[in-house]
Design a protein around this nucleic acid. Structure first.
Lengths: 277, 277
DNA sequence: AAGTGGTCTAGACCACTTC
DNA sequence: AAGTGGTCTAGACCACTTA
């Protein structure tokens, strides 16, 4: 037998780090901390756009980690489109703007706060209803099951920018109903109150014209183009929590997707019903 | 010393596979083939949505690979949002629709073909020009450097659906100019002719109103909402090749982004200049 | 030829879920 | 307690780029 010598290393104890500091999204694992360090270095211009990253071997030595761990770290940056990679050549820095965390993306309030803006929320209406056929499909509940339908107007620095029509699955509805009307961050509150974690999202993006009522609420002219994002969010188990139809006022918000040959989350879908001339 | 016994395995020879068959995107590596196998199984419903995947150990045994390789495979599905993952529990199938390859996303023609539709292209205008300030920035060329400006109308099954205003960097311009006017797939031709590979893309998505000329070309009413995608594509080295302003006719195309806590390429950006009331 | 990233292995410990 | 995914290591070979 090969006689494994089993050094029994990698205990967590070798990472003191005071447990009091519990900021949102503090990196736990070694590869996450290395990735964070690299993101910071790129953002600060220590590795300028167009320049190269240190080799894996160098990074491994610098962080006292194995090559595998370093690869795990840089592969995160790769997925975010921050760096490019070709076999045989050093990695190239592609962009300085780090991509936002999923949480930040999902939560309007958290996103606004990160950008130094103030988010406001206003519930225009909220009522129990039975699920429409397509909703029962998206939320994976029975047809006609009870759901909670909420219409919210979201503001950025006092300006109305987003109209949110959200349908919550029945099992989470009580927690949503218990929220204050002007709740700034629904995501945050739901997490704190119920421990709910949003883990996956699917977003369908297109453009529609503003109807009369929506135009008034968003203070634009009727027929103005609105950016529509229909999304469904699920827990880590894949259990759908909510599905929403969000309409953004033009000029207020832009969605950005960065992708590459290796990692491609973006999809373009044709709609049937393409009208004939 | 530990006396490494060095089995010297992993040679490629253990994978016969006729080299004649060179379809587009044939998976080369072990983990890619495993990932493909899993994607196929999910698409066929062998692992239904809501159900679980086999454990890593089982997959490793089934494919005669190590756990690391299997993890590399499933992490691809994770990034695509096809499966969800929680420590301690089996992976859950979230969706059946596989995400498209980057190439398919970038190339209108290839995307259309994959969907069983026919893409058409028509060059409305093509001319050399000097780069505008913002273009020189995006393409990383000197201010006023020569670029190629092309306006294309793309059709799907004969219907006009997309107006493409593309600016090519000077170094690739000759190859683009050599293309036939009605070239179906520019991407394909550029790759075949020059070996050019598009590797990274950044997409900014918002909605705008159709101007008079664009409305006519897309056969919609003036002021109709259009889905605008401004994108810049670069080679693997991060060298920008083209930047484009694409406007889609409403109802024809939807963009879909799937993401999760772990992998998040989607970003929401506020625009300054948000108009005051 | 040297350097560098891409792939793969075999084993280990941990945190978490499930039974 | 057993199962399962998350993390990490130490080493190997290969394909590719750079010089």
């Amino acid at each position: 037998m090969p006689g494994r010598e089993d050094r029994g290393d990698n205990r967590r104890a070798d990472r003191p780090e005071d447990p009091a500091e519990s900021g949102p999204d503090r990196p736990e694992s070694r590869h996450e901390r290395i990735a964070d360090e690299l993101r910071r270095a790129i953002a600060e211009g220590r590795y300028p756009v167009g320049g190269t990253l240190p080799s894996e071997a160098e990074l491994a030595a610098a962080h006292g980690a194995s090559r595998g761990t370093v690869r795990q770290a840089v592969s995160a940056l790769l997925a975010e489109g921050l760096v490019g990679s070709r076999q045989g050549a050093r990695r190239v820095v592609l962009s300085t703007t780090p991509s936002q965390s999923f949480t930040e993306l999902r939560s309007f309030a958290q996103w606004a706060r990160a950008g130094g803006r103030t988010a406001g929320g206003l519930v225009l209406s909220s009522s129990r209803d039975s699920a429409h056929p397509d909703e029962s499909n998206l939320l994976q509940v029975a047809r006609g099951a009870s759901v909670l339908r909420v219409l919210r107007l979201r503001t950025l620095d006092g300006e109305p920018v987003l109209l949110e029509r959200t349908v919550y699955a029945g099992w989470i509805a009580p927690a949503v109903e218990a929220l204050p009307e002007d709740c700034e961050s629904v995501t945050q509150r739901l997490h704190d109150d119920t421990g709910l974690v949003f883990a996956h999202g699917e977003h369908h993006i297109d453009a529609v014209a503003a109807g009369t009522a929506d135009a008034e609420r968003l203070r634009v002219r009727r027929g103005s183009p609105l950016l529509r994002v229909r999304r469904t969010t699920t827990t880590a188990d894949g259990r759908p929590v909510e599905t929403s139809d969000d309409r953004y006022r033009p000029g207020s918000v832009v969605f950005t997707v960065r992708n590459s040959t290796r990692t491609n989350p973006l999809t373009r879908t044709a709609r049937d019903g393409t009208p004939r001339a």
